[in-house]
Design a binder for these strands. Sequence first.
DNA 1: TAGATTGTTAATCGATTAACAATC
DNA 2: TAGATTGTTAATCGATTAACAATC
Lengths: 213, 213
Amino acid sequence: MGLRSQKIPTPVLKRMALYLQHVRDLRERDQEWVSSHELAASLGLGSSSVRQDLTCLNITGTANRGYETKFLERALVSFLGRDRTHHMVIVGAGNLGRALALHEEFPRQGFSVCGIFDASKRVVGRKVGKLAVQSMDELPRVVRRKKAKIGVIAVPSRAAQEVANQLAQAGVTCLLNMACSHVRTDERVSVVEAHLFGSLSVLSHAIKGQRKR
Amino acid sequence: MGLRSQKIPTPVLKRMALYLQHVRDLRERDQEWVSSHELAASLGLGSSSVRQDLTCLNITGTANRGYETKFLERALVSFLGRDRTHHMVIVGAGNLGRALALHEEFPRQGFSVCGIFDASKRVVGRKVGKLAVQSMDELPRVVRRKKAKIGVIAVPSRAAQEVANQLAQAGVTCLLNMACSHVRTDERVSVVEAHLFGSLSVLSHAIKGQRKR
DNA sequence: TAGATTGTTAATCGATTAACAATC
DNA sequence: TAGATTGTTAATCGATTAACAATC
């Protein structure tokens, strides 16, 4: 399985997460089959795209019926590597970092926050749920011990690059950048930039257009 | 200005927010000029793309010098509609919603949270910074009074569609969906989906690949 | 069977990249 | 002037959509 794993385009991967969420929901409601048309309608896509995307998976649909939700869910979970718990460390214990550390949806989806760090001595030691904010010196040890693969950058954008370096140095191989900046890393590290203000700027631009009518 | 406002592709708009962040930083450090090459290198893009993107703006660069940071920043601010405060309401007062309401970076970037709402009677009245969580009944009144244009959906994905309907009904014209689901709206409403778990799934997929080496 | 749906190929669309004349 | 950089056009690349034979 996944031997000839061709490179999957990022848009496809992101849609896969949508499929998973939706198919899981259907399966929990005891719906046994779902067609590409139904998925497409629910998720705002074309049915062609859905079928195209699903060919990346190790399953086949059935003509006249669609896909079996149970197997589709299983295939999506396996494909996305969501069949195990992913340990994350968060750097930055401001409001955003603390919130992410507390966000109930992460553990529910298999992402476990195993440490939160901050450069400021004033917040080190402060409790965030069951965790206490740790000093940056502790980062490499915690990453190694907990085998954390994902580092979340939740610091102001000016500090983001430095934090990215420290995380990579500590042994993390995946970065989720919540700051509104670009971070450079060596190619072995996968980076996804969340760009909240990119999204908000799409909206503020739209508002400007709306005023004209 | 902006009369023949052609439709701008979303990727361009998101990059514009990156340019703005970076150029503002340069200007604050008193750098007067920046070239497309320098911007490209800092933001992980090609210099061609940068120049192509910047042609959407109402400015011209200068051969042999690049762009003047002061005017570039001003043009980006105006283009993105970031020259005024945008009022947002947040629906969902779980950890994520409360965190967004407290996030210092929003006001700093001109996005002001003017209300936080929750369907659960148990959290209504609870303090979140200077705000108190309000009941969903209050939503239309607050949106109208504060002229809020942006609604943030910070509820579990099952409830997202219903909340989207309520926000649109209340008069909000832009939605930022933080839930991992798709929401449908009538075409007058602009929707951006943040898809945190889409981003995380890109990483969990990458981790699966890394294990092979 | 008839109707619905898949899997896949080909066509379209759009975004990114390369190239280069014009210009400071 | 020579060198660097823009603005813009054309070429490339990749993703989405349409179409349809195969199949249940």
